[in-house]
Design a protein around this nucleic acid. Sequence first.
RNA 1: CGGGAUGUGGCUCAGUCUGGUAGAGCGCUGCGUUCGGGACGCAGAGACCGAGUGUUCAAAUCACUCCAUCCCGACCA
Length: 584
Amino acid sequence: MKLSRYYIPTLKEDPADAEVVSHRVLTRAGMIRKLTSGIYVYLPLGLKAINKVADIIREEMNAAGAVEITMPSVQPADLWRETGRWDYYGKELLRFKDRHGRDYCLGPTHEEVITDLVRGEIRSYKQLPVNLYQIQTKFRDEVRPRFGLMRGREFIMKDAYSFDADETGAEKSYQDMYDAYARSFERIGLVFRAVQADSGPIGGDFSHEFMVLAETGEDTIAVCTDPKCGYAANLEKAVVAAPLNNLCPCPPETTIPAFELVDTPGTHTVEELCSFLKIEPKAIIKTLLFSVDGQPVAGLVRGDREINEVKLRNMAGGNDIELATPEQVKAWTNAPVGFAGPVGLKDVRILADQELCADQGWYTGANQGDAHFKSVHLGRDVKVEKFADLRVITESDPCPKCGKAIEFTKGIEVGHVFKLGTKYSKSMSATFLDKDGKEQHMVMGCYGIGVSRIVAAAIEQNNDEHGAVFPPSIAPFEACLIALAGKDAAVADKAEELYAELKAMGVDVLYDDRDERPGVKFNEADLIGYPMQLTLGGKGLKNGVIETKDRKTGERGELPLDNFAEAFKAWRESIWKSWGLDPD
RNA sequence: CGGGAUGUGGCUCAGUCUGGUAGAGCGCUGCGUUCGGGACGCAGAGACCGAGUGUUCAAAUCACUCCAUCCCGACCA
């Protein structure tokens, strides 16, 4: 491609609304433009990078036996009502009516559509397994879109859905996808990690997320420090090991004295209560009230711990969890926020962290203003529905798998694989006849990759003060040929010749043939982040060489012009190798 | 949805407090000089100051309402 005929509107200054590096660079380098909040135009360079990512994923999906289709982005509400998600999916689902007043939504995901499709076609175990995928634009009306392509409302996603005759088959499909994902991210050139994850509103009982490790990641993951153990989980999923003296559930017998009321005026927070009573947060039970699918639920954790809402939601068996409003707290406990406690709480489900069984004689809220109880014993004084792991893991907790230390790192979620089981096939009656002629529900899995997000994640992971540093596998062009011709026709002619030669070699090269000053060309090439830069100037031509620059290391060198093809091939291979990649 | 901030040529911003002729840099057009890390000179084009209402002799500036965008907290690829 000749730059003089191309479309790369670069910006000299950082856009005012871009906070993270990938957003800044993508905008400045002329790869994307914002249309409205969370919705972007993909300009030629950005689209090219996205397409390279998509091509790699497509190859790996096909190799893993998945088959490509394209489903509509507009979906009828009826399908969503069948699975109940029309009510449960929430506001991320953009709903609208057509001219006849019929309800529709823009697809944030496609379980309903694919299940509807497959149940109409598949009747026999002989037709299974099937794995269908698409690479398509999704729409999720995110509460707070941010960070450019990292969290858009409209974004490009690869989603695949597997259908198997039984659990064993489903497990194989899951593993195949897991492996295909790992291969894809390796080929793209990302440093990533697969971690255990919560399955969220997609549903199902087992899932892994693929996290690109980067400081700016929105997710925190807990990783075992022992590589042999390999435990890694999203913070919201990471299991806290049960305490050694696990007494769950608390026995009712106890020798501690009966609980009694203590005056604690104005102590709304754990900190205030502690300094007022001169006690440690560890001596307190924090009672947090939530609305789970509209029902009141109290979550109990130790005063110095953080409750894990995902664990609480799962334990309560709900779809949607929200912290109670002050009005709800008042209605459920008869007390203002800050004085809720489990003792005497009526019509509220009480779920407690397992750790609370390891000790007795707690301070808790008294469900009346300006007062707390002391000497509360959960087994004796409270009707706890269930004790379980309810809190957020901390860096001082042991690895739940091997007991060694864990550490936290930040990650960007670029892929997620789920085992769905029969959740959708049951609610939508996707059945087939097995060998014995018996009707069975298909066992499903679903698998997503954020294609456009990967481009942002790659930049988050690879950049410097000059701009992006693209892995050659997904760089919009793998090389940029810069001609410093000026009025020197010989340089222009030679550059033209080299450009043709590179194209003939199958190199995806951009030829900067513009009549611009050298500084402009160099700076733009660095900003965009082509892995390989080739510069031909008058001096080089005289000496029979062309200059090279490795964008990642900044290392410069020269290639002879008389044996250019050979020399370039070797250099190109070394560049790809430095990324752990292979040009072929 | 709560909290905070910002809307002024294509881009980045000043001007707003203290009302009185719309500014700068970048970019863009033309001419000339330059030409190995975002050149320089000269001459230009380009804005109903986010929208509406109000206050005033007079509003980018004050008041109210709305809209949009960004940042911080509950969702997800």
